[in-house]
Simulated assay, not measured.
Amino acid sequence: MNTLLITGVTGFLGGAALEKILNDNQPVNLLLLVRASDRAKGLERVKENMRKFNIRDDKLNALTEDDILLGDLGNPEDFLDDARLNKVTHVLNCAAVASFGNNPLIWKVNVEGTLALAQRMAQVTGLQRFLHVGTAMSCAPEPDSLVAESAEFRENAEHLVEYTHSKSTIERLMREQCPQLPLLIARPSIVVGHTRHGCQPSSSIFWVFSMGLMLQKFMCSMEDRIDVIPVDYCADALLMLLNSQAENGEVVHISAGEENSVKFADIDRGMALALEKAPVGDKYAQVSYETLVKMRRELKDIFGPCNERLMLKAMRLYGAFATLNVRFSNDKLLSMGMRKPPRFTDYIARCVQTTQGLTIPEQMAVDFK
């Protein structure tokens, strides 16, 4: 039986992958990297996250303290000597500091710690696959483009945030310093919500759409397209890729692609339908960031108590991504037999339902930790 090491299992994507494994009773030995003071507390952290995915207790009880590897990619030296790593056959590396804020741990975890893990696992004789989860945005895509699946990066590319810069850098370093690693790189596009659980597991990024429509103005146009996938589709794709015959070093997008990406106008109509109200439609205005800054004093009237400075920072960062109008080719994944992804608008009502009662500042906290 294979032994699968999952990092980031207390997060959104790692949790969705474990949800799939537990619900499908997949025959695999698990080793779950978790930050905690002891294995019992580590196990409880995993279970606490899995409850957000509505995992039944009998499924959760299949997890034991023996499945827990205590550690943190911020301090990899504390767990890399664990002998159980020598029995690992597959790695699903979901762990990362995914904050769009200026978190000082971004480089330490996403680059230094991840590289140390890759170097350690490259020494494991029986390792068959090291599946690293990057981000499609790590290539700093050109605006208004369909981005091909390529390991090449534009030199001196300007990254909008340190997070995408770190993800680009670690891909390059693993290729250069771990040539024997059975590396496969998955680059998800924008992961928002879950087709069944909506935003219950995480409200990450969903608030951006709500914010723009509440403002009735943002930096993108209603005709701009956005490449969004649900976390459960992404998790299904990752588990398929773990056992695929993809060549070492290959890059695969997990994305909506040209066909299933959606316009902001589609999102407006989908959210309006879920809320049983009229869409913003013609009342919406595409504006510059400077115009949004001038509205600073109005933000509390629109969103309630909030940190105006953080709200404006969020608008600047996410507005810059929204105006790119990029889609990411998913040809490789579909050619491997993966089903087509759902459109964001297919499950947006569930996201709306599960964020009712939460303010925009409450929802966005997960992305600025």
Rank of each mutant, 00 (worst) to 15 (best):
Leu127Tyr: 06
Leu127Trp: 05
Leu127Gln: 03
Leu127Val: 08
Leu127Gly: 01
Leu127Glu: 06
Gln128Lys: 15
Gln128Gly: 09
Gln128Trp: 11
Gln128Leu: 13
Gln128Ala: 11
Arg129Glu: 00
Arg129Asn: 03
Arg129Trp: 03
Phe130Arg: 03
Phe130Asn: 04
Phe130His: 00
Phe130Pro: 00
Leu131Asn: 00
Leu131Arg: 03
Leu131Met: 01
Leu131Ile: 02
Leu131Gly: 01
His132Gly: 12
His132Leu: 09
His132Cys: 14
His132Glu: 12
Val133Ser: 04
Val133Arg: 03
Val133Gly: 03
Val133Glu: 02
Val133Trp: 02
Gly134Ser: 06
Gly134Ala: 00
Gly134Thr: 03
Gly134Val: 02
Gly134Tyr: 04
Thr135Ser: 15
Thr135Gln: 05
Thr135Met: 06
Thr135Val: 11
Thr135Asp: 13
Thr135Arg: 07
Thr135Phe: 10
Thr135Lys: 13
Ala136Trp: 03
Ala136Asn: 08
Met137His: 12
Met137Asp: 09
Ser138Gly: 10
Ser138His: 13
Ser138Arg: 12
Ser138Cys: 14
Ser138Lys: 06
Ser138Thr: 08
Cys139Ser: 15
Cys139Gly: 14
Cys139Leu: 04
Cys139Thr: 15
Ala140Ser: 15
Ala140Gln: 07
Pro141Ser: 06
Pro141Asp: 04
Pro141Asn: 06
Pro141Phe: 04
Pro141Arg: 04
Glu142Val: 05
Glu142His: 06
Glu142Lys: 10
Glu142Asn: 07
Pro143Leu: 14
Pro143Trp: 09
Pro143Ser: 11
Pro143Cys: 10
Pro143Met: 13
Asp144Ala: 13
Asp144Thr: 10
Asp144Trp: 05
Asp144Ser: 15
Ser145Cys: 08
Ser145Asp: 09
Ser145Trp: 04
Ser145Arg: 10
Ser145Ile: 01
Leu146Cys: 08
Leu146Thr: 09
Leu146Ile: 11
Val147Arg: 04
Val147Tyr: 05
Val147Asn: 00
Val147Thr: 05
Val147Met: 03
Ala148Cys: 11
Ala148Gln: 15
Glu149Met: 10
Glu149Trp: 07
Glu149Asn: 04
Glu149Gly: 03
Ser150Thr: 01
Ser150Ala: 04
Ser150Asp: 02
Ser150Met: 01
Ser150His: 03
Ala151Pro: 05
Ala151Arg: 02
Ala151Cys: 05
Ala151Phe: 05
Glu152Phe: 09
Glu152Ala: 14
Glu152His: 09
Glu152Asn: 10
Phe153Val: 08
Phe153Ser: 04
Phe153Tyr: 14
Phe153Met: 08
Phe153Asp: 01
Arg154Ser: 11
Arg154Ile: 12
Arg154Ala: 12
Arg154Cys: 08
Arg154Asn: 10
Arg154Phe: 07
Glu155Cys: 06
Glu155Ser: 10
Glu155Gln: 14
Glu155Ala: 11
Glu155Asp: 08
Asn156Ile: 06
Asn156Val: 05
Asn156Lys: 14
